[in-house]
Design a protein around this nucleic acid. Sequence first.
RNA 1: GUGGAUGUAGCUCAGCUGGUAGAGCCCCGGAUUGUGACUCCGGUGGUCGCAGGUUCAAAACCUGUCAUCCACCCCA
Length: 449
Amino acid sequence: MSKLVQPPKGTKDFLPEEMILRRRVIETIRECFALYGFVEIDSPVFEYFELLSRKCGSEVEKEIYVFEDKAKRKLGLRFEFTSPLGRYYATNAEKLTKPFKRYIIGKVYRYENTQAGRYREFYQADADIIGSYSMNVESELIDLAVFTLEKLGMGNYEIVINNRKILDGIINAAGIDESKKDAALRALDKTAKIGEAGVIKEFLENGITEENYRLFMRIIDLDSGNERTDNAKKLSILKERLIRELKDESVKQRAVEGIDELSSIIESGRKAVAADAEIIKFDPLLVRGLGYYTGPIFEIKSKDVAIGSFAAGGRYDNLVELYGARPEGACGISFGVERIIDIITQKNADVLQSVSSPVKIYIVYLTGKEKPFAYKTAKILRSKGISAEICVSSEPSIGKEIKYADKKKIEYVAIIGEREAAEQKLTLKNLKTREERLLAAEDLFEFLR
RNA sequence: GUGGAUGUAGCUCAGCUGGUAGAGCCCCGGAUUGUGACUCCGGUGGUCGCAGGUUCAAAACCUGUCAUCCACCCCA
């Protein structure tokens, strides 16, 4: 294929069959957000570059699509919804009902190398609450996620949580200098991937000692004996340890606060999702982006498909202040629509095959004479909410039209020929069972309903 | 941005140490002029990702480039 007829790197075309599933996933998410009382908003796909890049770190900044408009304004495409939300809130704060619970579903753009599950243009579905410091917000968002994933049929997944305040405490207790915190966290985040030796290597490269690493790991070694320790137990062990180890009072206070926050989230999580309490897992090695998170952070990943996390979020209490609004608590969660679809299709390869057309019936009339009757019938069905497609060929062959309907996965075909039109009836054929029956037009609606 | 693998028909792929392309599925037509998934027959479709180079001759070898996948980086 010539390069001129390919979609640009990291983007793709969606075929009609793919769109059916895509639409269903997006609609499901939208409905769930609405059921929880979030209101929908929209904001521009591009913003001033300076606004997007504010406090996002150079790593992320490199991923922003930047361009100049004709008046030389420097603009960028949104790479997620959080910074646009900060701006949106700051510009409209006086008009918004607080706490402001909003959702937004749309395309975002990241200039990064592509891979399976990583695109340059993709959909995110984002729900945030601004205006509360309560941990009830985190609980609500996690509950929303569980509810939504259930509706989507996502099956086996786990919600991993941690807290920036705790991480800061452990870093301090491990004797790692504040200036080296980011490097340390970045290395620690990769533990599962590169192993102990890899992390130590990265530590040394960044001027952090192996001793620091050992200390850190000793503090977060929370499994007593062989038995699997539950979240609450882990948190309480960690809490005692940090109280004992931390010398700096303010650091200690913050770390303890962080632990209490997670305990509260996990506790209400257990109540809300009772049987599934196991899906929430405290992991002191979860770090996430180094940008604006200030409190609890979480990530949701599939246990069946290795595609990275498909949803993530956390608290970023400094966000709206960054854009000039009065300080407010803020916390949000974002779903990666493509990744969710990838997981659904990989787990169940034939969902794409099994999706059926939103069109219920295909109407074929054989000669021009039956046309008025056919159109009238179609119109009645549509006005009653039954989707009906009508054949546009001027010389239809029944075989071809049935084949067409079958390929489009339409359930029924109505055939109107001379015989039928004479009695104001039509032949209704079920394409799956191949059954046919002669029906009066007015009985059609009852039958299809 | 770095390293590796791959790129042949709409799809999945074959094509030997260089001699300008094949199969299956799909699609179209017919057997079957008011009935689709099976069967049979026939047919369309490819400047071998793109651009250079080596050669009498390149899908194959070399270089560049674009895209996809994988590992980094980072992340939905």
